[in-house]
Write a protein that binds this DNA or RNA. Structure first.
Lengths: 223, 223
DNA sequence: GTCTATAGGGGGATAGAC
DNA sequence: GTCTATCCCCCTATAGAC
């Protein structure tokens, strides 16, 4: 707790944004929680939006570096051969879910991140795209190489569904509660459950896509 | 467009809530869009919260009735025997994704619903729990019967992950865009893709849960 | 039922003292 | 770097005319 004002504001903002969302969190709530003055936000960050961006970038950059490092390690080990899908899933989603178990702010941040994708504000979308560009490119390439039998478009949808499952695993506590009493206190169990589910979905039999919508005569083999 | 003021307000609110979220949508935006007077909201609904509740209940009640009707039909057909998991998934998620393809407000509503689970406000959580109570009970029972080999706790997590995938399938357009250019205009294709993925995840091999958290000694081998 | 006008509260941002 | 005081804007809700 003996950190500087700037860090205290970031920590307080992270926690309150996770709990109340971007719009409902006020600078007054943040500065009160951080035991700082209202004007301190504008002094240190310039505006509420700039503060929010700083909250995200602080941990998201690090998270995606970890993902790439994990992928690098697997690829070095494989020496040019395609990775196992399980390894790529581990590098992307495993790293995330492990960060979500970290009690030192990682958990709070991942919950915030998880709820942000479905409530996108323009300025957030913008810097998220920047932060994700490299990691997405790397993982797409790795997956395409590892799953040559899965059409790339089909894979992208599956990746998207996997992101949804991850998001709920991390920040869907309220939806979870709808299902009845359930123990969500064991991060290792959550990790194991999510990995099974994701790999099951990723490796599912391919759907038959019936091209009855005339709009896009989907060339399944040509091109 | 020749509907009454009350309906126009509901339609406008649905659309704006979907786009901007609960907090960032103001009554002024809604009444302007609905070509109604600002005071009309309070006259017809009493408050902003009551309006929001009406927006959700209008379609959610109907959606869950459809789900139960679909389940009833499968169960009548099976005559007491357990259903196939695919049928139950179809009754719950298929109905939802079909409503999400409906251009007559269903699509807008489902996108709103999808983003709501991860940005829960207290009063929303409350009536969502009411609206879901029956359908959740029915589907849990059906799944437990259909999947006797899957521990119930494991199934609940998988159901939760499936909800996450559904949510992204419906309202994660922004997250999807991060992955690159992708065609999301074909509802039939989306339906087929999501069903494959969900069933793959639901039927995945069970994870090994290592019970090192003392709380729940899950008897995997030694206990 | 629908309007205008306004009350009453809270928001983000900033000027200027210390 | 940190504070107080304040500007100006927009919000929800409601009173009261029509």
């Amino acid at each position: 707790m003996e950190t500087d004002t700037r860090s205290r504001i970031l920590d307080a903002a992270e926690k309150l944004l996770m709990r109340h969302g971007l719009d409902a969190t006020t600078l007054r709530m943040i500065t009160t929680e951080a035991q700082a003055n209202l004007a301190a936000v504008n002094y240190h960050f310039g505006s509420k939006e700039a503060l929010i961006e700083a909250v995200f970038r602080r941990r998201l950059t690090w998270l995606n570096e970890q993902r790439i490092a994990a992928l690098d390690a697997f690829e070095a080990e494989a020496g040019g051969a395609p990775l196992k899908p399980r390894q790529i899933v581990e590098a992307f989603f495993g790293v995330a879910i492990r960060m979500a178990a970290d009690q030192n702010g990682g958990q709070t941040f991942m919950r915030l991140l998880g709820r942000t994708y479905t409530e996108p504000t323009d300025f957030v979308r913008k810097f998220l795209a920047e932060e994700y560009a490299e990691v997405i490119a790397r993982f797409k390439a790795a997956f395409f190489k590892a799953l040559p039998d899965v059409p790339q478009e089909e894979f992208l949808w599956r990746f998207h569904f996997m992101m949804g499952a991850l998001s709920y695993a991390i920040s869907g506590a309220d939806a979870l509660r709808l299902l009845g009493p359930i123990d969500d206190s064991d991060p290792d169990a959550l990790y194991a459950r999510l990995m099974s589910f994701l790999i099951g979905g990723l490796r599912a039999p391919l759907p038959e896509i019936h091209a009855k919508s005339a709009k896009k005569p989907r060339a399944r083999r040509a091109a």
